[in-house]
Simulated scan of single mutants.
Amino acid sequence: MKLGPFKSGYVSVIGRPNVGKSTLINQVLKQKLSIVSHKPQTTRHQILAIHSTENGQMVFIDTPGIHNQKGTALNKHLNQTAQSSSHGVEVVLFLVEAMKWTDEDLRAAKVVQQSTAKKILVVNKVDKIKNKEQLIPFVEKILNDFEFDGIHYVSALKNKQIEPLVDVIFNHFPAGEPIFDEDQISDRSTRFFITELIREQLMERFHQELPYSVTVNLESYEVKGLIHHIHAVIWVERKNQKGIIIGKQGEAIKQIGVNARQEIQKFIEAKVNLKLWVKVQSSWTDDIKAIEALGYNDEYK
C-alpha cells in the first residue's frame, strides 16, 4: 500500500573489506547482484544496486572495502573508488562487524565523517554475539569518536533486521521522482555481471593460493537460438598462477567453468555455453593502463 509521497535517493555503503557490504545489499534487493566471498577486497568495482518499491526508489552504491594495503595502482584505485562514493548521496551506511574494530575500520570511519549526508552506523553480524550487552560499550566507543544520525543492528547473512533498516533509510530521503526505471536493478550490463560471477568462483576456490592479481574479461558473448555462448579470459600476473587455475590435467578450470556456468544461468535465466582461457599479463595490478584496459575505471559498464 502506497504511503505518502514517492521518495528517492542514493545510499553509499562504506566499511573495511569483508565486513558484509555486498551481502547486505543483496538481501535488500532479494537478489544476488554483488559477488561475495570470504576473501577481502572481493568487490572491486563501484556498483549501483537499485531497489524500487511503490513508495520510493533506493539506489545503493556498493563499493570496494577501504583498506590499508599499499603499493599497487589497483589498491589505490579501490580506495579512491570507495572514498568518492560518500559524496553526493542522501545517506551513508557505515558498516562495522560486531565486537571487531581495526585500523581499516578507523580509516573508513574518517571517510564517512567527511560526508555531509545523513550517517547511520550499522553493526553487522550481531547473530554471532551471544551476550548482546557486550555491544553497548563497543558502540559507545565508536560514538565517542564519531557522530551518527542513527544506529542499526543487523545480520546481513541471516537477513535479520534488514527491512527496518530500509525503512530508516527511506525516512531520510526527500520526495522525488524515480532516478532509474522501476524494472532496472543496476547501472551495470549483463556482460559485467557475467565476469563478476566467474571471478567469484575463482575467489572461492583459490582464496588461499592466489592473491588479488586475478581478473576476468569477456572476449565474446553471442546468443544463438536459446543458448548464450560466452568466451572469457582469466588474467593473472605470473605463469605459476596460470598453472594453479588450470590445475592437474585441466581439472581445476573445468570445475570453475561448471560452477560459473550454473551461476550465470541462474542470473540470465537461460542456457549457457561457457569457455574459459587463462592468460598472463605481467604486473597488471601496478600498471594504470592495464587496469583501465581490464575494466577498472568509473565509466566501465
Rank of each mutant, 00 (worst) to 15 (best):
M1C: 06
G20R: 03
I25K: 03
Q27V: 03
L33F: 01
S34C: 10
H38P: 08
P40L: 11
T43W: 03
Q46P: 07
I50H: 08
E54G: 12
N68H: 08
S84R: 06
S85L: 04
V92C: 12
V96T: 08
V96Y: 02
M99S: 10
K100C: 08
L106K: 11
R107Q: 11
A108G: 10
V111H: 06
A117M: 00
V123L: 01
K128S: 13
I129M: 02
K130L: 11
F138G: 11
F146G: 07
F148P: 11
V154Y: 05
K158Q: 14
I162D: 09
I169M: 08
I169Q: 03
F173K: 06
E182C: 09
I185A: 07
D187V: 09
T190H: 05
R191G: 06
F193M: 03
E196V: 02
L202I: 15
E204H: 13
Q208H: 15
E209Y: 14
S213I: 07
V214L: 10
E219V: 15
V223R: 08
K224F: 10
K224M: 13
I227P: 05
E237H: 03
I244M: 09
G250Y: 12
E251L: 15
E251V: 14
K254C: 04
G257W: 06
G257R: 00
V258E: 01
N259P: 01
A260D: 00
E263N: 11
K271T: 02
T285C: 01
I288S: 07
K289Q: 11
I291P: 04
A293N: 12
L294K: 15
D298R: 15
E299S: 15
K301T: 13
